[in-house]
C-alpha cells in the first residue's frame, strides 16, 4: 500500500500523500517514494560574471556556469525570477543536462565555477549535490545563490562542496518572512552561520523593497545582525528592487535609500557594503578598510582590479577578506 511521506529537506517539512507535491512544486510523492521532478532538467542555463551572483570577494572577473530548475520553496511577492521560480516543472521547457554534461559545458566555456542560482537550489538539491561533487573532482568551484530555507541536515551534507554562497537575507522580521515570502526567518539565519562555519565564503544580499523593509531601522537591524554574527568582513549587498511579480504597484527603490543604508552599515563597522542593481557613487567599489585605497572598481559587470594582489592591499599590505585565488593578479 502506498504511504505518505514527509520531506525533511526544508523547514516546511511537507507531509505528502501519494500524488501530492511539496510546496516547492518539484518534489512529489510517487507511490510512497519521494522523487525529484527536475533532476538534470534546468530551465535556465547561462554563463555569467561572478559579480552577477553577486559575489564581489570571490575570484573577481571570473566566469560562472549558472543554472536553475523550475521551483522554489518560498513565494516572495517581489520575486525577480518568478516566471521560473513560481512555475511548475510541467510548464517550462527544460534542457536535458545531467551533471556530467554540466561539468563538460562549464569547462568548454572556460568557467572556473558552477553556480546553482536564479530560482532556489535547495529545491533541486539532489541535482545540485551531484553536480557539486563532480565539479569538485574536476577542480571547479561551486557557488550557491540561495534564500537559505533549508534544514541543517541536508545543508551539512551539501556545504562541504560549496566554495561560496550568496544568501538572500530578506529581512530581520519573521513576520515579513511569513507575510511577504511564505517562509520563516530563523532557518535562514541558521543557514548563513552554518555555511560560514563550514568554511564557505559567504556574502549576504538584502533586497530593499519600498514601504516593506526600507525603513532605516530594518536595514540597520540587518546590518547589525551581520556585524555581530558574521563579522565586519562579511560583504553585505543592499539590492535595488524593481516592480515585479505581485508588487508591480511599487516604485523602484530610491537610490538615496540604498546609499543611506550603505552609509549606516559602514558606520556601524561593516567593512564591505555594496549597492546592487543600481549605479551609485562608490556603491560597487571595494576599498581597503585600513588605508581607504581603491582595490577593485566596478561598473556594471566590468571589473577593474587595480589595487589588490595576492589578497592584500597594494598600498598598505592589509589582508583583504575573500577568496582571491590569484584571479586578481592577472
Amino acid at each position: 500500500m502506498s504511504s505518505s511521506v514527509q520531506c525533511v529537506l526544508c523547514p516546511h517539512a511537507c507531509v505528502l500523500e501519494p500524488g501530492q507535491r511539496g510546496r516547492c512544486g518539484v518534489r512529489l510523492n510517487s507511490g510512497g517514494e519521494l522523487v525529484s521532478l527536475v533532476y538534470g532538467r534546468p530551465v535556465a542555463v547561462h554563463v555569467d560574471p561572478v559579480e552577477k551572483k553577486p559575489l564581489l570577494h570571490f575570484m573577481p572577473g571570473s566566469d560562472v556556469f549558472s543554472l536553475a530548475t523550475a521551483g522554489c520553496n518560498l513565494r516572495c511577492d517581489f520575486c525577480q525570477n518568478w516566471e521560473i521560480s513560481q512555475a511548475l516543472p510541467e510548464d517550462v521547457p527544460p534542457y536535458d543536462l545531467p551533471p556530467e554534461k554540466v561539468i563538460e559545458h562549464a569547462e568548454e566555456y572556460g568557467c572556473s565555477s558552477i553556480a546553482y542560482t536564479y530560482t532556489e537550489p535547495v529545491v533541486f538539491y539532489e541535482y545540485t549535490l551531484d553536480c557539486a561533487r563532480l565539479a569538485r573532482e574536476a577542480g571547479l568551484s561551486n557557488i550557491l545563490v540561495t534564500a537559505g530555507y533549508i534544514n541543517q541536515g541536508p545543508l551539512a551534507e551539501l556545504a562541504p562542496y560549496i566554495d561560496a554562497a550568496n544568501v538572500d537575507l530578506k529581512s530581520m522580521s519573521d513576520r515579513y518572512y511569513r507575510e511577504v515570502c511564505g517562509g520563516t526567518l530563523q532557518p535562514v539565519l541558521n543557514t548563513i552561520m552554518a555555511l560560514r562555519d563550514s568554511g564557505t565564503w559567504v556574502e549576504i544580499t538584502n533586497l530593499v523593497v519600498p514601504t516593506l523593509n526600507d525603513d532605516p531601522e530594518d536595514t540597520g537591524a540587518l546590518a547589525s545582525w551581520v556585524l555581530e554574527n558574521m563579522g565586519r568582513d562579511t560583504p553585505l549587498h543592499y539590492s535595488r528592487f524593481f516592480p515585479m511579480y505581485r508588487l508591480t504597484d511599487l516604485a523602484p527603490t530610491p537610490l538615496d535609500t540604498l546609499q543611506q543604508a550603505r552609509t549606516e552599515a559602514m558606520d556601524m563597522g561593516l567593512n564591505y557594503v555594496y549597492v546592487g542593481n543600481a549605479v551609485t557613487p562608490g556603491g560597487m567599489t571595494t576599498r581597503c578598510p585600513e588605508c581607504g585605497s581603491v582595490l577593485i572598481e566596478r561598473e556594471g559587470y566590468e571589473v577593474d582590479i587595480r589595487g589588490i594582489s595576492h589578497g592584500a592591499c597594494d598600498n598598505c599590505s592589509a589582508s583583504i577578506a575573500g577568496v582571491w585565488d590569484g584571479t586578481e593578479d592577472r
Binding site: 505518505s4 514527509q6 525533511v8 501530492q20 517514494e33 532538467r41 538539491y125 541536515g153
Partner: peptide, 27 residues
C-alpha cells in the same frame, strides 16, 4: 495534488524526471 497522468506522460517524454530524492521519511 499533481495530475499524475500528465506527470507520467511528461516523464516518458523526458520533460520531467522521477529521480529518487533524499531527505524524506515514510509516515
Amino acid at each position: 495534488m499533481a495530475d499524475m497522468d500528465r506527470i507520467m506522460e511528461l516523464a516518458e517524454e523526458g520533460w520531467i524526471t522521477l529521480h529518487e530524492a533524499g531527505w524524506y521519511v515514510l509516515k
